[in-house]
Amino acid sequence: MGLLSSKDSKLISDPLSDDNPITIQVLGICSALAITAELKASIVMAVSVIFVMGAGNVVISLIRNIIPSKIRIIVQLTVVAALVIVVDQVLKAYSYSLSKELGAFIGLIITNCIIMGRFEAFALANGAWRSFLDGIGNALGYGLILIIVGFFRELLGSGTLLGYAVLGDSIEKTGLYSIGYENNGFMLLAPMALIVVGLIIWVQRSRNTNLIED
């Protein structure tokens, strides 16, 4: 991070560990449950959120001094919605197959509370460059958890990673399945995502006891 001052680089690194949006700030839980049954969906969602958060934080930061405080939430919502619709339309026109893959996720980004949370908590009070870094950092922290959860859910639930059968064929009984291993269908259901997130929180807090509230 030679390009960034130490204060700025903390904006990126903090959300990845000690100020993670999901495990510490407890934001964005809904999408972490909904779309992590597959690793690929997690990655796609992470990338989309990185883009929208980076751009959205910059826009909000640039207009922060002219936003009327009474309607600031509506203004924030409009900015996210507009960004998301533009991305959706451009993808549909120029990369139709990709937009088919992303499908419902693009719309789901609007409802992600991390985005509104960071607008409200950071971009409204900070300059554009720092807001941009904060947006990217938080989106990365969010994406990291999404990918970890997606990895375990797809591996243990379907026996695949990114669609590749890494443990052998469950129907033909090859690989691990030949010695009696079975996929755990429960991993595919939303409650298990919560439990995996819970385990991550446990690991994180036992490694850094400063994070434990009294």
Binding site: N65, I67, I71
Partner: peptide
């Protein structure tokens, strides 16, 4: 200035 009702309305319309 940004707390005035008229400003809020104008901002919303413009947006």
């Amino acid at each position: 200035r940004t707390d005035k009702n008229l400003y809020t309305l104008l901002f919303a319309t413009g947006m």
